[in-house]
């Protein structure tokens, strides 16, 4: 996402340069048509994306409950945030979730992608792998709550056949976050695998030929050829999935609603709770800004890492 290049080709950029110097050129200026074409999208961008961005940051410096006008309070919300143990707990919970979710998902997706790459190009198979991604987080969450129900779920039924005591997957505070992380791995692994698969297909076949001639085995080829070549793409995949993962809300909201005993109180849930149950929009906005900063830092770090030696591809 961050790798979008703003260049529009030499023809276009040179023409804008000349237009900037002499605007009313008769030659070819589509400004009037262009304004018409761009108007709805620009309105959407301004009103529902850029303005909310500014407003969200502004609200984080205010005391606002939706009913009375927002009142500027300076850094009060941020001071409160730093001293709020629940905020830091939910930050920890979120990071724990992201580490589990992304760690497992990336490995599983890589395995699926490699298997598909090696075994078959079948669209049917790729379609099947993608199926969980078609259902909403809500449906995915509900299905697994039912399958893993402590008393009546088939998951625990299978465990009992194996002689294992029932596990409260969503009701035991030690299990809840790993379970939710796995539910989301289930939903997203196929999609992530297809992203990696698309990346694998861009790798030049010649390097595999060379590796084979050098007598490299499969594992060696994977770690010395595939993985380094795939690094820029993996970096992109990781940026996308990690940012998505930090925003986890739906699955938690329908499965545990933050419980048991705040064990799954992820950041988005706490923010939602603060805004819509306690009507503290100012403080909720400050926490949102906190998340925004975390996401920004992660993006920059990963972008740097992926750019560190792009010479891999050459």
């Amino acid at each position: 996402m961050t790798a979008v290049s703003p260049s529009t080709g030499p023809r276009a950029s040179s023409s804008t340069a000349t237009e900037a110097q002499s605007p009313p050129r008769k030659r070819r200026d589509d400004t009037r048509v262009a304004l018409m074409f761009i108007a709805p999208a620009a309105l959407g961008l301004g009103v529902f994306l850029l303005w909310p961005l500014i407003r969200g940051i502004w609200l984080s410096f205010t005391d606002y409950n939706l009913l009375t006008p927002a009142e500027f309070v300076g850094l009060a919300n941020y001071r409160r945030l730093i001293a709020d143990p629940i905020f830091w707990d939910s930050m920890k919970t979120t990071v724990y979730y992201v580490v589990l979710n992304i760690g497992i998902q990336t490995v599983v997706a890589m395995i699926i992608a490699l298997l598909m790459y090696r075994l078959t190009q079948s669209t049917l198979l790729r379609g099947l792998v993608l199926t969980p991604y078609l259902v909403s987080n809500v449906v995915a969450g509900l299905v697994w709550v039912w399958i893993l129900d402590t008393q009546f779920g088939v998951g625990n039924q299978i465990l009992s056949w194996l002689g294992i005591d029932p596990i409260g997957f969503f009701t035991d505070s030690a299990w809840a976050i790993p379970t939710i992380a796995l539910v989301n791995v289930w939903r997203h692994m196929g999609y992530t695998a297809l992203l990696i698969f698309a990346g694998l297909q861009t790798l030049p076949a010649s390097v595999y030929e060379a590796a084979r001639l050098d007598g490299a085995g499969e594992v060696r080829t994977f770690f010395s050829v595939t993985l380094p070549l795939l690094r820029p793409i993996m970096a992109l995949v990781l940026i996308m999935t990690i940012i998505g993962s930090f925003q986890v809300f739906d699955t938690v909201a329908v499965t545990t609603a933050g419980g048991p005993a705040n064990a799954t109180n992820v950041l988005q849930l706490y923010i939602y709770d603060m805004a819509f149950d306690r009507f503290q929009f100012g403080y909720a906005s400050a926490m949102s800004v906190g998340l925004l900063i975390v996401l920004g830092i992660i993006t920059v770090i990963q972008y740097r890492l992926s750019r560190a030696d792009t010479s891999d591809m050459g």
Partner: peptide, 28 residues
Amino acid sequence: LRWKGRDKVFALFLAGLMVPTVFTLLPN
């Protein structure tokens, strides 16, 4: 299309791409 300010407006859209949706939910 060729029009004045195209690259600047485009840069704004680029910036929009980097705003996590979840951040805009409360203000929206």
